[in-house]
């Protein structure tokens, strides 16, 4: 429409000025709560245990959970569209086993990594295509993907295969020191943080990213608004597949082996981290930074329980369950409190 229209009484400048007054969105409340929880947990641990209050304990959260961070990023994309991806844990194991097997067979490390990443992306792409074009529920499709990937692991190798490739071990044992300190992280952490940064940028600043939120808000509306819904819905599963494969590589760096039974149940951790980080499971609301926080909270709980010493490891599960409950109820309260 090119012609001029009668301009109304409200000038754009006026309405823009009015919009400047910033108020914290209700939707950020869960993410803020997660941050507060993280700080409180860390402070509590520091008061209670000797040696807890150290930069390295904090950094080790990243080191130990680098692969989970990457998984949670992929999961965030999927959940933002209102979907779910149950296959991520199995894809992590498959990536590890496949890398180990190929390296043992004499492949060079870089082609192995590329192949694994391409395979993970392709699996995600295939699942996304089935979900979108054949209109089958994501839960079911990714469940089948989960079985398929886990089954392929066993086909590749039932036994655990050690990894001795120099590049992989360099990644595993390498330490990147923070400038001017004794503190270090593994190279994997840098990869994970790069993934977080890229994902945050894509979600906030690209049409694809905004489209992800739109599809999660209302897929039907997004379609009628002319958004490339197919590309977005298939795309998020491809992204999740890529992240799973990358997470698998990071996990392989961490464990220096490929094992078919590795990362069982990791999909639940990734989902839990995403939800605790403030992403609505029904889609449309959430931040990658929140998911990162979610992973850190999960890691911190484990650290606290290991520092406690007398507590058995199953308390971790119970605490995570209780946390999930708390955040779900919090989200529920916020959604219900809002206008219809």
């Amino acid at each position: 429409m090119t012609a001029t229209m009668p301009t109304g009484t409200t000038t754009p400048a006026a309405s823009a000025a009015r919009s400047r007054s910033w108020r914290p969105s209700r939707r950020l409340v869960p993410t803020l709560a997660t941050f507060v929880l993280f700080v409180a947990l860390f402070a509590g641990g520091s008061l209670r245990y000797d040696g807890f209050f150290s930069g390295q304990v904090l950094l080790n959260l990243f080191v130990d959970n680098a692969f989970l961070i990457v998984l949670a990023v992929g999961m965030t994309f999927v959940i933002l569209t209102g979907g779910i991806d149950l296959s991520v844990g199995s894809v992590v194991a498959l990536s590890g086993v496949l890398s180990a097997k190929l390296l043992a067979a004499g492949w060079a490390p870089v082609p192995v990594m590329l192949l694994v990443l391409v395979l993970g992306t392709a699996l995600g792409l295939a699942m996304g295509a089935v979900i979108h074009y054949l209109d089958v529920q994501p839960f079911v499709v990714t469940l089948a993907g989960m079985f398929l990937a886990r089954g392929l692991c066993y086909v590749v190798s039932v036994e655990s295969i050690p990894i001795r490739d120099p590049l992989f071990t360099a990644f595993a044992t390498g330490a990147v020191y923070l400038p001017g300190t004794e503190l270090y992280v593994s190279p994997s952490v840098l990869v994970a943080l790069a993934v977080v940064a890229i994902a945050a940028y894509v979600l906030a600043c690209t049409r694809f990213g905004r489209g992800v939120y739109a599809v999660g808000g209302s897929s039907h509306s997004a379609m009628l608004m002319g958004l490339p819904v197919a590309r977005i819905r298939v795309g998020v599963y491809a992204i999740s597949g890529f992240c799973s494969a990358l997470g698998g590589l990071l996990f392989a760096f961490y464990a220096l082996s490929g094992y078919s039974l590795a990362a069982v149940g990791t999909e639940l951790d990734a989902i839990a981290a995403t939800v605790i980080g403030g992403t609505l499971l029904s889609g449309g609301v959430g931040l990658v930074a929140g998911s990162l926080l979610g992973v850190l909270v999960l890691g911190l709980i484990q650290t606290v329980i290991s520092f406690e010493g007398t507590l058995s490891s199953w308390w971790t599960k119970i605490v995570i369950g209780v946390l999930l409950l708390a955040f779900v109820v919090l989200q529920r309260v916020i959604v219900r409190g809002g206008p219809r």
């Binding site: 939707r27 049409r207 905004r210 489209g211 939120y213 739109a214 999660g216 808000g217 209302s218 039907h220 509306s221 997004a222 009628l224 608004m225 002319g226 958004l227 490339p228 449309g284 609301v285």
Partner: peptide, 26 residues
């Protein structure tokens, strides 16, 4: 362009985004 009886926009996004979704200035 079509405007439907039922509002087919995304309630979770801002008014501005809903107006320009898919053709945001870049």
């Amino acid at each position: 362009a079509t405007v439907y009886q039922e509002v087919n926009l995304c309630p979770n996004l801002s008014v501005a985004e809903n107006i320009l979704l898919g053709r945001e200035p870049r």
